[in-house]
Design a protein around this nucleic acid. Sequence first.
DNA 1: GCACGATATATCGATCTGATATAATGAATC
DNA 2: GATTCATTATATCAGATCGATATATCGTGC
Lengths: 205, 205
Amino acid sequence: MNRVLDLAILGLLMDRDHHGYEIRAQLRDRLGLWSNVSFGSIYPALARLEREGFVEAVAAEVKLASLSTGSLSGERATLRALRPAPALGRKGRKVYRITDRGREQFALLISDPATLDDSKSFSLRMALARYLTPSLRVGLLEQRRANLAQRLFEMRQQAKTDDLDGYARSVMEHGAKAVELEISWVDDLLASERNNQQPLAREAN
Amino acid sequence: MNRVLDLAILGLLMDRDHHGYEIRAQLRDRLGLWSNVSFGSIYPALARLEREGFVEAVAAEVKLASLSTGSLSGERATLRALRPAPALGRKGRKVYRITDRGREQFALLISDPATLDDSKSFSLRMALARYLTPSLRVGLLEQRRANLAQRLFEMRQQAKTDDLDGYARSVMEHGAKAVELEISWVDDLLASERNNQQPLAREAN
DNA sequence: GCACGATATATCGATCTGATATAATGAATC
DNA sequence: GATTCATTATATCAGATCGATATATCGTGC
């Protein structure tokens, strides 16, 4: 049921085809999901998305022995490609492509305002914001801002409660500052959204 | 294998006895672990800690009908307390106390410098920092600072890579700013650690 | 030739999440 | 004093995630 990883993977596949290993790197380098997502999440998620018809495997890219093919290596490559069961071969990357149903699902997931609670999923949406219409973007930003303002208030309250020692209080105060920083980020995004003199999105495909 | 929740629970029990429901609230309000930890984590974790001998259940606090006890309510309470199997009763809070072995385990977990990678576990340690010796505190802070500096460098690099659109870049830049904020927090803590004119910790216990 | 690090997929057990079930308590309303 | 309702409280389930490990190929350097 975790839509976050589904959204992230589909978002990457909107851009171009990818295989699992690459998806992990892109999650880190382009979508801001550091603390590397484990392979134990990636591969099951891809299998799930395929099962649901949102992505399809577009033939394992079996690396042929470059140009000078000795008969032996050629034969081995053929053997590997023909082998019946073991899931398109040991090795040989399995490249995935998003389907039409996958695109629909992506549009659904990215514009769903229900799951906007945590920083991680919000950042992910922003990293994919070029796929949203301007009005949806503003809507999500405003809702996130409201959430953060509420949270800031709560954290301020907590930081004031008396039975905290200095360290615990310091943690709460830092937490509040982090929320403030995110609020000012959202405000910047909203500002550049409203007077979109310098649009943040390049052409979305 | 997740030591983080174990550390958090043992940390709370160092202070005083708690039952599961209360632990969840304290995790949020005193240890800065918002985005409420689910009960599906808390109760199994307590069972695990009990199985390993780090905590013990100190009799379910069966709420007796306050002062004016009608015979009926008294009888019901007795019946509930005597019922044989179902794990100290439906309802009636199960209060846990930390054992000596639990204290040892806590000391071990909180001073382990290996698992200092993410913000969440670092914040948790800081919320419990009064249980650390000054030198261990400084050690953890310095190591965290080094981690963050490395990370800041990486994020700066990523924000500069060319094939990002404006939104993705904005995410990366905000991420870098968040790391900077945490670095300055760590620096503040280190400073007040070194000239501990106003010690952050009140009496530990 | 061959050692080694990077690329790549897959799977396992332990754990975590989000949802749901169950039930007692306390307070307000009638 | 009956009834509704939110809060307190424990427990469990399916599905998802993590961290570790296994396996194998590719590319580079020696």
